Amino acid sequence: MTEVLLPIAIGLVYVLLSSLIPEPHRRKFNALMVAGAGAAYLSGGELGVWELVFCAVMTLAAFRGLDSWTFIGIGWLLHTAWDVVHHLKGAPILPFAADSSFGCALTDPVIALWAFAGGRSPWAWLRRKTPAAVDG
Rank of each mutant, 00 (worst) to 15 (best):
G65Q: 02
M33S: 12
K28I: 07
E46K: 09
W76M: 15
T70W: 05
A81N: 06
A37D: 02
W69S: 01
L77Q: 11
V53G: 00
P24I: 09
A61Y: 08
L77S: 08
F63R: 11
G48E: 01
W82A: 12
R26Q: 13
E23A: 14
Y41V: 01
F71I: 09
A40S: 13
Y41M: 06
A81T: 04
K28H: 07
N30P: 03
G44I: 13
L47K: 11
S43C: 03
F71H: 13
K28N: 07
R64T: 10
A56W: 06
Y41H: 05
A35P: 00
M58Y: 01
E46T: 05
A37I: 08
M58Q: 09
V57S: 08
V84N: 12
G48A: 08
T70E: 03
A61M: 15
W69G: 01
H87G: 02
D67A: 14
I72R: 01
A62H: 00
L60F: 05
G44N: 06
W82I: 09
W69T: 00
A40W: 02
L77H: 09
H79C: 14
L88F: 13
W50V: 04
L42F: 07
A37W: 08
C55G: 04
V34A: 14
T70S: 05
A31R: 04
M33I: 10
A39L: 15
H87A: 09
W50N: 04
L78E: 06
D67M: 11
V85T: 13
T59E: 03
V85A: 15
V84Y: 06
L60H: 04
M33H: 10
W50C: 03
A61V: 05
R26M: 03
H86G: 04
A56F: 06
E46M: 06
G44A: 14
